[in-house]
Amino acid sequence: MTIVQQVITIAIATVTNFITRWLPFNLFTSGKDDRDEPSPFIKGLGAFLPPAIMGMLVVYCYRNINLLSGDHGLPDLIAGLITVVIHLWRRSMFLSLIVGTVSYIVLVNFIF
């Protein structure tokens, strides 16, 4: 690729990526008033989706594990479970993140 083609490639990715984030505001609001409400269906959808998306993103983090071969995804699953247990116990985000990540590092480097 020439430098111009590279710039065009990056520009297309930039604009397309921005549009996917901005489009709902263009489609479902007038853009003139903060208080105007999207239709009941869209508003309800916006309230229904986030918990599902949070669950989706957790599964997304696990998309590369292979249950059938290698380490069977055990380091990821065990460290995830440890994170959940620590969080239920102390409910401190930082403690959960640190213990979860350190246990994963120990698991992948020294155990599996």
């Binding site: 997304y60 983090c61 994170t83 959960s96 993140l97």
Partner: peptide, 8 residues
């Protein structure tokens, strides 16, 4: 991953 787990 831990961040997403905690927030979920």
């Amino acid at each position: 991953t831990a961040l997403f787990i905690v927030l979920a």
